[in-house]
Structure formats: structure tokens, C-alpha cells
Amino acid sequence: MLKINPPEKWIETGLFMAAVVSAVAIVSILLLLIYFCLPLFSGNGLSRVFSWRWQPIDGQFGILPMCAGSLALSILALGIAFPPAIGICTLVHVLSRGVFARIVLILTHFMTGIPTVIYGFVSVFVLVPRIRSLSEAGTGFSLLTAAITLAILILPTIVLVCYTRLEQLDPVLRLASAAMGFTPIQQMRHVLMPAATKGVAAAAILGLGRAMGDTLISLMLAGNAAQFPGSLFTSFRSLTAHIGLVVATDSQSLAYQSVFAAGLVLFLLVAALNLIIRKTDNRITANAFLRVQETRHEQNF
């Protein structure tokens, strides 16, 4: 009996359409955001939104404090997460290949699977009171609280991307340096890390992007006061939290427009980081990502 197969060409077209969906989605996100930002470009809308004051009652809709907040938060979080991430990579890659390394790796994988809201929730009850008592004044909902929690959130991403890149290095490098009498930590410091610099840098930027795109941690832990993050213990608001807060509460038109501006700024920032990653290490998207994205590589929540 003859089985009739659908024409190959149709199938290919169908699959191609599916592949186009992501491109269509990303372009429409960008266009829709730009469309809703357009009113800003008439009158003095732009200067009102890109100012340092957010006081909707007085007609002040500046989002610059939130931009500063997002930057401060993500850089601080990366600063806290990066050194231990490298440490953990070193540990599991060269120092301990036994049971402990395996446990650490599995836990790292597992950490990527813990919902963000849970990190935030636990932090509210564990970290906030401690920071509060540390700073004397203040509520404990602060830059430092959010940054520490966010650091824990992005740590596994950085570890896994770095680790994948290290595993991709030619094994001969380790063998050759060991044969010259390098101790494991020397191999890591002088051969493996330098050989994987690009991948490590890309991992850091990836972590930065994730930190910048995260909403819930700052929404739950930063206190959300629309002010410049002047110290580690001040309350502040990130761009992401700003979007969430304003859409949920306000409804004045300029407040909304500031939200679209915030969305656009965020989108462009993260897209720029994405571009930098590609420029730094083009293999990261092709290879390292593939294994890590299965662990929610760039998930922003």
C-alpha cells in the first residue's frame, strides 16, 4: 500500500513560519513600545520623563532615579555574585572533582529552578530584619537587601555559563599545564581562566542582563521609593519595579508614558548587553548557551 506523504515543501514552509515567530514577536514588542512612546517626542514630554523627579501629584514624571536604581542594583548584584561564582567554578572544575563537586553542581542547577518569588519571599523574612538592625535607621528594604538577594539569584547562571565554557576548553590545556608541574589552582589562574576570559566576561554580562531585567526581587525588597539610590541602605526603585507599580496603580496618561519609556530603555539596555555578549564571545550563544539555557539561562524573574 502506498502511503502519501505531505509535500516536503509545505513542511519546510510551515517550519520556517514557526522560526519567524520569534522575530515577529521581538519586532512587534519594539514597535509597540516605540508607538506608545511617540507622544513623548512632542512638546516637552521627553525632558519631563527624563528628569530626576518623580512626583506625579506635582506633574513630575522623571524616570532617571529608576534608571540609576536599576544600574546600581544590577552592578552591585554582579559585584557580589561574580567572585564566588568564579570560586565555585574553580572548585568544581579543578579542585574537587569528587562527591562534593557533584553536590555543588547539582545544587547550582537546582538553584536555577527555584522560583524568584521564593527568593524574594524568604529574603523578606530572613534578610530584611538583619539589614534593618544593621543600618539602625531605615526599614531594611534597601539597595543592599535587594542586591544580595539578586546576587544569589544570578549566581547559578554565571557559574553554569563559566563552567560550560571551561569544559569546552581543549582538555589538552589542563593536561599540558599539569605535566609542567602546575598545581590545580595554578592551572586555573594561569592557563584555564586566561584561555576562557571571553567566556567568563560574557557570563558576567549575562548575569548583569539578568539582574537588570529582574522585577520581583526589587519590587519585594527595594522599598520602591522613587529616589536616587544614595547609599547601600536607602530605599530605591528599579525600572522594572516602576513598570509593575505604575501599571498596577496609576492611570494618568503621562505616568503611563513614563512606563513605556522605562520599558523601552530597559529593552534597549538588555538588547545592548546581548549585542556585547555576541561581540565578546560568539560561541556563547551557539554552544554555552544551549546547555545553560536549559537551566533558564536568561530568565529574568
Binding site: 531585567g213 501599571v247 512606563v259 530597559l266 550563544t285 524573574f301
Partner: peptide, 23 residues
């Protein structure tokens, strides 16, 4: 097309939500 996928995966989820809201 892969770079489009990467862009999409890099998009913060709040922006994805905002996209829905603007729709």
C-alpha cells in the same frame, strides 16, 4: 534567526508583560 531568539530570550519578563498590556 538565532540572534532573534537570543533577543527574545533576553527580553525582561516585565517588558513581555508590558507588551501584553500595550496590546
Amino acid at each position: 534567526w538565532g540572534s532573534m531568539v537570543d533577543l527574545l530570550s533576553g527580553t525582561p519578563s516585565i517588558v513581555m508583560g508590558l507588551f501584553g498590556f500595550t496590546m
